[in-house]
Each structure stands twice: as structure tokens, then as C-alpha cells.
Design a protein around this nucleic acid. Structure first.
Lengths: 205, 205
DNA sequence: AGACGGTGATGAAAATTTTGATTGCGGACG
DNA sequence: CGTCCGCAATCAAAATTTTCATCACCGTCT
């Protein structure tokens, strides 16, 4: 497995590389110090499966960076590891399709669990972010979605099936169904498509 | 049944009223000459079931007019009868939730068929508009949606079930299923929610 | 003018898969 | 103790897929 680390701080890259070598001894770790460099590396290594990306790097905005990477390799999984923790930025990154957002000050244990999840095709977002987004939904009768329900809603908004959502969240399909049932009722929707449309109209996804 | 005609041309209102009286002898027809007047009439007649609305009227923009009416009576069915035939305007009106768009120069026979449809809870849009919108979708491999498939897609985008779409389009559920199967395949989607999301990303709904 | 083929729309049926609703249970946490 | 999350099971409904059929329309060919 090939992984690319993109961060402009050499020492941080070294630390993350060491960490990854422990988690995946057989993985090949490449690195880049800027968006431009990352794109060059990707051009020359089409078999890279995951990029771990800082947002605060030179040569272009992080949004353009992500868009250019997506354009170059639409199926590449992009994980963000960033000191930027502004909720607006995180939300924007999620909407651009990154599969995880890891704050740089995350503790190593949580980091490793999140990395394992992501390395196995899953996703990770900081719980505080999910909680806040769920809280931002104005539902009738004072109803609220829990963080997990909101996560499921975000997957529904990508058109995933219950099976696919279960896989992404590493839970059983039965659990996903319970979350879906609950969020449909809270949102006053009768099916998943309606729930997604309502959430879009509320501006939460 | 109560119907409100909103048009600033008195003679047009008279003509439409006569026409409606023929179609529905027992209906009660009210009228208004502006958006403001229409809103006043609606406030005083909560049992109005359908409003037939010109877009080019005084006192506010047609968009604000529709939004204000929707706010006042969310379940009221709004039909547009307008000389404005710009595709952009028609699309905007549809997206604001009007249930039909009738050009003023429509021939009386087609008008009456369309009115019958709408009076029975259905919807009507000029075929040329639907064809154009369908053609605007950039699908892979030169694929295109037919006008009917696109109509079904628009209903999917409102979160309707197959049964509900069949009812709206006055066709059988079997027919709807066929259209859905065809549009899913043309769009490369595996389920209706994905199809809606893809269409949204293409900017066609 | 008529035949023919292709396309789109309609309708039906059947099978399979997915979804949604409901109920019950156990553990963790505040 | 209540809520949330996880899991399972059952059932009904809906969705998806596939196949078959008919009809109308249009363009092409004879």
C-alpha cells in the first residue's frame, strides 16, 4: 500500500512517517512539502491509495489543492491532518469529499485508531464537529439528531445504501437501520431521499 | 372547491373565469389584480385550494409573491399562467414548487386538459421545457434522458415514492418503475437518492 | 403509398433486494 | 434513571431488476 504525506513541516512528516511505519510496516510512504509537490508525486505514482494532507501549505489554497487532487485522481482517498479547527473549514473540507479530518493536536492513541479506520476504508470526523452540525439542525418540536444519526444522514446524502453505511461506520446494518428510522422520524421524512432533501434545504449538508 | 385567479388584466380574469365555470360549474372563483390583493384574499379564505397566478403583476416580484404565498399557505397548490416563457424563469418557478406552468398563448383545448389535470391534483409543464431540461443533462457515453424520464427524476427530487409519482403523472406504478430503471442506468446511479444527488450536482434540478 | 425497423411510452408480471417499522435486549454514560 | 448506542429478529412495504407485450410515431427504403 502506498501512502503520501503532504505537510510543509519536515519534522512533522518524519513523525507521522514513523507512526505509520509502526501501524503498517509494509506500506510505502512518500512525502511532499506543498500542494504542487503533492500533485507531482501523485502524477508519478498513480497507485497511491491514501493521501494525508495538511491544509496550510504553500502554492495554492487548500480548496484548490483538494479540487486539483480530486480532478487528477477522483478515487483517491484524502485524509486531512490540520491545525485548522474552524468548523466552517472542516465542513467545507467534508463537503469536498475528504474521508477524515484529524486535528494536529489529536492524541496519538486516537490518531492511531482513526488512522486504522481510514486505512481500512472507513471515515473519521472529530465528534465535536459532528455534534455541532447535528445541533445546528432546526427540527420541529425541539427534536434533535444525535451525532451518530447525523453521521448516517451525511452518508445518506452521498446516496449510500444501508449496507454501505454500515461498512463505512463499522457497525451492523441493523444499527444503521435504527439510526435511519430515528432520524426520519425526527425530521418528519418518510424516506431517505426526503430526509436528504430536507437537510439540504436546512443548509446542514 | 375554491379557486383564486390572480391576474392584473380584468378581461383575462373574466375569460378564465368563464372557462373555469364551464369546467367546474360548482366551483367558487375568486379573483385578485395583484400579488398583494391575492395575499389578502388568501388570508380571508383559508379554504382556497388552487391559485392560478400571473407572474407579471404589481406590488412585488413574482418570486417574492410565490414565496409569500407559500409561507402563508404551504399546502396551497399554485399554478402559473403567464406570458413569460423564458426557460430560466420557468425553471425557477418550478423549483419554487408551482404545480403547473401554462403559457398564456396556450390553445384552449390544451389549457383545459392541463387544468383538468391540475384540478385533479396533477401537474403540467410545457413539453418543450421538459425536453430542453432533459437535453441539458450531460451524461456519459452520449446518453440522454427522455422527457418522461426527466419528469420522473424531478419527482424523485421531491422525495416521492413510486406510487406517488404514478399518481402525479397519471400512469401506472409499473410505468414509473420502468422510467426509474432507465434513468438510473443512464445516469450511472444505483438508487434514487444517488440519481437525485447527481442531478443536483449537474445543476439540472 | 406502403412496409419496415427503431425508439419511446405504456402496461403487466415475477423475482430479488433493500428499506422501513417495530420490538426486545444489553452495556455505557451522565 | 433516562438516553444513546450497539445488536438481532420479524414482517410488510417499497425499490430494483428483468422480461414480455402492445401501440404510436418517425425516418428510411422500396
Amino acid at each position: 500500500m502506498k501512502i503520501l504525506i503532504a505537510d510543509d513541516h519536515a519534522l512533522y512528516r518524519d513523525g507521522l512517517r514513523l507512526n505509520l511505519n509502526n501501524l503498517l510496516p509494509e506500506a510505502q510512504i512518500l512525502d511532499a512539502a506543498s500542494f504542487g509537490q503533492a500533485i507531482d508525486v501523485l502524477k508519478n505514482n498513480k497507485d497511491i491509495e491514501l493521501i494525508l494532507l495538511d491544509l496550510d501549505m504553500p502554492e495554492m489554497s487548500w480548496e484548490d489543492g483538494i479540487k486539483n487532487i480530486k480532478e487528477l485522481m477522483p478515487d483517491l482517498r484524502i485524509g486531512v491532518i490540520s491545525a485548522l479547527e474552524d468548523a466552517h473549514i472542516i465542513k467545507k473540507a467534508l463537503n469536498l469529499g475528504v474521508c477524515c479530518y484529524l486535528p494536529k493536536n489529536i492524541n496519538t492513541k486516537v490518531l492511531n485508531s482513526a488512522l486504522c479506520l481510514v486505512l481500512n476504508g472507513g471515515t473519521y470526523y472529530p465528534p465535536a464537529l459532528i455534534n455541532q452540525a447535528a445541533d445546528n439542525m432546526n427540527l420541529a418540536n425541539g427534536k434533535k439528531l444525535t451525532a451518530r444519526q447525523f453521521e448516517v444522514l451525511r452518508y445518506l446524502a452521498q446516496g449510500l445504501s444501508n449496507k454501505q453505511i454500515a461498512y463505512q461506520m463499522s457497525v451492523s446494518e441493523a444499527t444503521v437501520k435504527l439510526h435511519i428510522n430515528a432520524l426520519l422520524r425526527a425530521m418528519g421524512a418518510t424516506n431517505r431521499t426526503q430526509a436528504v432533501i430536507k437537510a439540504q434545504k436546512m443548509g446542514v449538508i
